[in-house]
Design a protein around this nucleic acid. Structure first.
Lengths: 347, 347
DNA sequence: TAGGTAAATGTAAGCGGTTACATTTGTGCG
DNA sequence: CGCACAAATGTAACCGCTTACATTTACCTA
């Protein structure tokens, strides 16, 4: 592959001049520019990114750490990030953390070792203190879905509490009073926030919160199945259940059916995340939308603006979930729904 | 960040010696090695990948082109590739082709421009001639899911014909005779191969192929819905349908239900791909497994072996799909299934 | 026409490594 | 003890590009 040196020889100019026309920096006369461009074309010249990176101390790579790529939400996030960065000529490298502090740490080191210019992190196990300790390190980073005190301008978060509220409020509006809840794992920030929102909606509706109707799941299908098995064995009646993510909702559906419940008439179910799968379930899952691709894209824009000094007008840090109404939740026992249900719950 | 120069100064040796201990190349006395290691440790030295790449003309990156990352099959493939490469200390960069020849070409150029040492391509729009024309270009590449004459040792393929055969054969074995087929888009190799397999299973069972019971879908949910709507409006009876991928099967299920069919009793459905979604459908979708993560990993191993000269024992190029039996297909009208169905259809 | 200034272009020193080759050091043996 | 040879280490060129600074060229004015 041709180098800048060959181009310069062919065009009869110096290396510096070739570099100038490549980067549109400095002044070059139209005549020389044309000569250089012609030479590049004839040689089918492509600049060597590696050499550029070394010379400028910029790798033009941004590293993304996700728990996994094959899950629906992270794949969407990655895609959102890649699209935004690619358009700006930047590269995306990813690593997976598998929700394990050691692997997350290793992933971060891996990306830094790769000389990424910036990092976009969706961390689940490492704690805030770790992030704060990295604040002044050389590689700038942003955080998706966690708000860290002292790092706020680098955090991109979903209002999980509001999402949890929306889900339960939606059921309340339809007339449900006995609402079970399947939460995410204890200690996970988003899981806890969603749960808090659930309780707020209950309280607002004057419904006493019943600890027994809550089950701590694992964010996976099996957790949802086990949850419903456990809840159903309690002999405490409930007409609806909100699951802290869609996968658990899918598991809950399967389990409910194996208990001969007819969905959605015998049991209303609401999920959270709005992953593609939600549309395919039967009945189609009503859920709370998590605009993860947008959040990824926004994090990428922050990097473009703050690390690569691109002109980017605005960067939003806070995202609001919205309710996606499908067919998995209906009024209990055919009772007609509260009129509020027909209003715009997201408003 | 410390450089090799600082390490050499601190250890009181030359640059070359430091490089030698880093790469375990050449001979270094135990005493100096210890000194150098200590210096590296004290300075928390990490070699600069960029500089190494420039010096060795090796980027240690492999580029992956996929149609999209957020779809279930490609996410799994990416994950399989990344895991294998990461373990070998190599980096994965990806680009998306969106099933558009221009974008695929641009993606490939992008990856080559990035100085990837090798490319793993899942191409959908670019043709064989293009690939052949690249054969002798500097960047080696492998191809997933397409067999190109003259490039066979670089191709990793699923036996789609056999998969299509398995799906239909499974239904035939259960006693179905009137089997509809929803294919993938015309002109797509895998779609056509799957279709051929379907016809072979029919022929083998002595069932006359009826063109009218075939619908050309788009590999998306809507295609499956539209397909079933169309097929049902024909007034030609059929007791089962095989869909050329799981998403269309999901769409078909939804549509069947809206026509008041009871699944699986009124209509058996078989999909293809075995994406995670298949397990969540109701009834759970019987489908054909596409071991896409394995194929990705295998392609990565080829690269490790042939490009990075790692010792890798064996590389498989041909993958066999297998039938995954769940609950979406049963004997028609309660008729008992052919005994063959209980044997090992995959054998 | 000389002199001054701005524009255009060139020179060369990095960036942080690798590696061929040269040089120094150490060891065994006559 | 001196020599030969291998082992250990050092020197410096190079990978392909950027960029500060130096130099040349072009043009304008007095």
């Amino acid at each position: 592959m041709a180098t800048i040196y060959e181009v310069s020889k062919r065009a009869g100019v110096s290396l510096a001049t070739v570099s100038r026309v490549m980067n549109d920096s400095g002044r070059v006369s139209d005549k020389t520019r044309a000569k250089v461009l012609a030479a590049m074309d004839e040689l089918n010249y492509r600049p060597n990114f590696i050499a550029q990176s070394l010379a400028t101390n910029r790798s033009n790579c941004v590293g993304v750490l996700v728990p996994e790529v094959s899950g629906p939400v992270f794949a969407a996030m990655l895609e959102g990030i890649e699209a935004e960065l690619r358009e700006a000529g930047k590269f995306t490298i990813f690593a997976t953390g598998h929700t394990d502090p050691d692997k997350e740490l290793e992933g971060i080191r891996f990306l830094i070792g790769r000389r990424c210019d910036a990092l976009i992190l969706h961390i689940e196990s490492l704690d805030d203190d770790f992030l704060l300790s990295q604040k002044n390190d050389s590689t700038p980073f942003v955080i998706i879905n966690r708000e860290v005190e002292g790092l706020k301008d680098r955090c991109f978060t979903l209002d999980n509490e509001h999402g949890g509220y929306l889900a339960t409020r939606y059921l309340v509006d339809q007339g449900h009073r006995d609402i079970a809840y399947v939460s995410g794992p204890t200690g996970w920030r988003d899981a806890e926030d969603r749960f808090v929102g659930h309780k707020r909606a209950l309280e607002e509706a004057g419904i006493r919160f019943d600890e027994r109707l809550c089950y701590t799941g694992d964010y996976h299908e099996e957790g949802g199945s086990r949850a419903l098995d456990a809840l159903l064995s309690l002999d405490i009646p409930f007409t609806a259940v909100v699951c802290a993510n869609d996968e658990m909702a899918a598991g809950a559906m399967a389990s409910a059916r194996s208990h001969d419940l007819v969905l959605p008439d015998d049991l209303s179910i609401v999920g959270f995340d709005n992953v593609p799968l939600a549309r395919y379930l039967h009945p189609k899952l009503s859920t709370v939308n998590y605009p993860v691709a947008d959040m990824g894209a926004m994090a990428a824009r922050w990097v473009l603006k703050n690390v690569y000094n691109r002109r980017i007008d605005s960067v939003d840090h806070h995202f609001k979930p919205t309710l996606v109404e499908r067919t998995s939740a209906v009024a209990p026992f055919g009772r007609s729904a509260d009129v509020r249900a027909r209003g715009d719950i997201n408003g």
